[in-house]
């Protein structure tokens, strides 16, 4: 399972690869906001052009993206149908009990599905051009305001990079625990909610125990090697910002603003 996430980076030479991790994250959040605000045909067209342009610039093929989207087709169908039948009962074409097939529902279903598709597209571009190390580095910079609350940037950096390293390890453990409980006869399909809730315990508790056990061992190892909070202050060199970083942020901001206007 861990391979799923970690293996998504595709090495390359594009302008996206060259941008700083923090820039890409800022752009991603701006585009994310744009996606959420989009609700007109013109808006979606703009999004589409942005996505296509980004994909080409990043050197990520359409097939890769297509595969990611295809994997979630069940999710899309469910969301679409839910909106189609439950969103609104005004001017319904067809009604039965709690189901109301309405034009507003159709529009809402389409809009929501399209938003998620675009999010996936942009996520794929982000992850495809940014190594996990760059991502956490970028996130660390964006979280640096937390220094005010007593967590230094160096500590945040350490926490994020350890978190990313833990993911494949804990993923494998969770998989093993799940299989072990299934082998013992655990049943996850209960008749009603409370049974299904209880059935989560055999997986959730051991997974937390495993995670905390690993954290315990790592903390001991770090303390033994003399890790101190003060030492975690990163050497702050000059932060170099390239033209492409600025351009990217400006462009993303522009897309976002246009969505507000469209």
């Amino acid at each position: 399972m861990g391979n799923d996430i970690m293996g998504q980076y595709i090495a390359g030479d594009s302008v996206f690869h060259k941008m700083r991790g923090s820039t890409k994250l800022i752009c991603f959040f701006l585009i994310l906001t744009a996606v959420i605000l989009t609700d007109s045909a013109a808006g979606f067209f703009l999004l589409f052009m942005t996505a296509a342009g980004s994909a080409i610039l990043a050197g990520i093929g359409l097939r890769n993206i297509g595969k990611s989207i295809a994997r979630l087709k069940l999710f899309f169908i469910t969301i679409f149908l839910m909106n189609l039948f439950f969103f609104s009962s005004e001017q319904a074409w067809w009604s039965f009990w709690i189901f109301h097939l309405s034009p507003a529902g159709l529009e809402q279903g389409t809009v929501v599905v399209m938003r998620v598709v675009f999010l996936l597209l942009f996520s794929r571009i982000l992850i495809g051009t940014t190594t996990p190390a760059e991502l956490t580095g970028g996130l660390e910079i964006l979280l640096s305001p937390l220094g005010v609350f007593g967590i230094s940037t160096g500590e945040t950096a350490m926490i994020l990079s350890v978190a990313v390293q833990f993911i494949p390890i804990l993923s494998k453990e969770a998989d093993q625990i799940r299989k072990a409980q299934i082998a013992r006869g655990a049943e996850f399909e209960g008749r009603h909610f409370w049974e299904r809730a209880k059935s989560a315990l055999p997986v959730v508790i051991p997974v937390f125990l495993a995670a905390f056990r690993r954290a315990d061992e790592l903390a001991l190892a770090m303390e033994a090697r003399g890790y101190r909070k003060e030492k975690a202050q990163r050497k702050r060199g000059r932060i170099s910002i390239h033209l492409c970083d600025v351009q990217a942020i400006v462009l993303s901001g522009a897309v976002c603003m246009s969505q507000i206007l469209l």
Binding site: M1, I5, V207, F212
Partner: peptide, 16 residues
Amino acid sequence: VKCAVLTAASIALCIV
């Protein structure tokens, strides 16, 4: 140190 590493583990669990 323990708090920091436990936080890292918790973040990882948010994904796992």
